[in-house]
């Protein structure tokens, strides 16, 4: 039985929680850019939360299902139609043979995640089914999904109807405050530069993808060229290149960075990066390490409550 992509959408790809332990070979983690929504979607269909799903970006697909199954969609909110009738995020959707799911206009966020009660037939590469779009490996045929692709699904059972508890639901306003801690070169920025960075409002540019997110604001200028050596670059690093405009690195980004980093988005806020799109407004604020740890632990507790683990 297969999923038939009548239309693939803008950038539709298979993602799970990514691959670790290979950054020393230049291989970034990949995986769902919004690692929160993938877990919610998998939980709804009764799958382990790290199972591969379909990541949909800005313009969604039209999919015909060649057999019955249970699906769930979390993350960005699109207008969703099943055979012409509205269906919704954050709850199970029961699918019959030959049903057609259509992603229409996007209302909130940037990336949605479709989870399935069945198993997508995929071969993990380097420990993950995620598609590495820049290096072209993993996922479905080492690439994003194209029009007319068919994705095989095996060994599934239907799952019972479920909804995401209200406390776990997320909305995306397009206006975010991202919390940060220090990064390697933070101390090389003057007080004035830091003050400017943490007080001004940034806008997300159209150059916003799985490698990184370019922002625009009043440029941060250097009197002297900063003294830095290339070193390990992590997700959420906010680099200031010579243009003075900030770039946030993301899941498919480089593993070594050469621009000074003014700050780093905390782990608890990284999922939001997957929901940013051109025109969104951002502010940054500096928090302590202990708050960053507490915020991540709280998300984990909420998830554990939901999954009952």
């Amino acid at each position: 039985m297969s999923l038939h992509f009548i239309k693939a959408g803008l950038q539709t790809s298979i993602q799970d929680l990514g691959r670790h332990g290979l950054m020393h070979q230049g291989i970034s983690n990949s995986g769902a850019m919004d690692s929160n929504s993938i877990k919610l979607a998998n939980w709804l269909v009764g799958k382990p939360i790290e199972s591969p799903v379909i990541e949909v970006t800005l313009i969604g697909p039209i999919i015909r299902f060649e057999g019955p199954m249970t699906i769930a969609i979390c993350g960005a909110q699109f207008e969703l139609y099943l055979n012409g009738d509205l269906v919704f995020n954050d709850e199970t959707i029961q699918i019959k043979k030959d049903d057609v799911l259509e992603f229409d206009r996007i209302r909130q966020g940037a990336r949605a995640y479709i989870a399935f009660s069945g198993d997508l037939q995929l071969t993990p590469i380097l420990g993950s089914c995620s598609t590495h779009l820049t290096a072209k490996f993993g996922g479905f045929n080492n690439r994003q999904i194209n029009d007319k692709d068919r994705l095989e699904i095996t060994s599934f059972t239907l799952s019972s109807n479920k909804k995401i508890p209200a406390i776990n639901e997320v909305t995306y306003s397009g206006n975010y405050l991202l919390r940060c801690t220090h990064s390697v070169e933070s101390e090389q920025f003057s007080q004035q530069q830091s003050k400017q960075f943490f007080s001004q409002r940034y806008q997300v540019t159209p150059e916003c993808n799985r490698m990184g997110i370019k922002l625009t604001g009043k440029p941060i200028t250097f009197k002297e060229k900063p003294d830095i050596t290339s070193c390990g670059l992590t997700q959420g690093s906010i680099q200031i290149p010579p243009s003075g405009q900030a770039i946030i690195s993301s899941v498919d980004g480089q593993t070594i960075g050469g621009y000074p980093r003014i700050a780093n988005v905390i782990s608890a806020d990284l999922p939001i990066l997957g929901q940013l799109k051109a025109g969104d407004q951002l502010n940054f604020t500096l928090v302590t390490q202990s708050l960053a740890e507490k915020m991540l632990a709280e998300i984990q507790i909420l998830q554990n409550k939901m999954t009952g683990s």
């Binding site: 670790h20 332990g21 950054m23 020393h24 050596t229 992590t234 593993t255 984990q300």
Partner: peptide, 20 residues
């Protein structure tokens, strides 16, 4: 989770929920 050696540095990425 990951360890990235570079010219003059080593970067260690860890699981914040497992070790402070």
């Amino acid at each position: 989770l990951d360890i990235i050696p570079a010219y003059q540095s080593i970067t260690i990425l860890f699981d914040l929920l497992k070790i402070s």
